[in-house]
């Protein structure tokens, strides 16, 4: 059987979402490569507990002002889960405004831990069911870029990002 990661990446490709992968130690280089400047982002080190996730060594402005957000091209956030059969990302909403950073930009770069890739929608919803019931909260199941067909043809990039890039952080051996 196809591995979760292979099916996830296959689905992303079909959606027109680009993917790169990196070891944890190389994350900042991967982020630097993935962003188009000006870039803003959310620091993830507090949740992840690793210095690399603070994004300090990247061109990303962490925790930007609202004006900086509006002027940015790229927004960098974490993704809570990946969903193998759909190529979806589960974006959680934190008080650090990840919802704004992933939404009000042209290009969204999402950082996802390989072990957080779920095989399918069923498993992902079960996971969210548990989390919501324990600690409340919200999440967006985001699949590909924002899109509309309302103007007479399919157009990528409606109100939300028009490009999505996923950085898969590989499990350390």
């Amino acid at each position: 059987m196809e591995s979760k990661r292979a099916s996830f990446e296959g689905a992303l490709e079909a959606l027109g979402v680009t993917v790169s992968s990196t070891a944890e130690s190389e994350l900042e280089a991967a982020v630097t490569e993935a962003v188009t400047e000006p870039a803003v982002g959310i620091a993830l080190d507090e949740t992840v507990g690793d210095e690399a996730f603070s994004l300090t060594e990247t061109p990303v402005t962490v925790d930007p002002t609202p004006v900086a957000l509006r002027e940015a091209t790229t927004g960098v956030t974490g993704a809570e889960l990946g969903i193998g059969d759909y190529g979806s990302l589960v974006l959680s909403m934190t008080e650090a405004a990840s919802e704004l950073v992933s939404l009000f930009v042209e290009r969204h770069v999402a950082i996802l831990h390989e072990e957080d890739i779920q095989p399918d929608m069923d498993a992902a919803v079960a996971e969210l069911d548990e989390r919501f019931n324990e600690t409340g909260g919200s999440a967006i199941i985001a699949t590909g870029p924002s899109a509309t067909a309302d103007m007479g043809a399919l157009v990528k990039g409606a109100h939300g990002p028009r490009e999505v890039h996923v950085i898969v952080v590989e499990e350390s051996v």
């Binding site: 934190t94 919802e99 919501f132 909260g137 919200s138 967006i140």
Partner: peptide, 18 residues
């Protein structure tokens, strides 16, 4: 197969009002 966004919101949501 799925639309771009399925928002699962438990309002009032935590996103800061800026």
């Amino acid at each position: 197969d799925i639309t771009s966004y399925v928002s699962l919101l438990t309002p009032p949501v935590d996103t800061p009002v800026v």
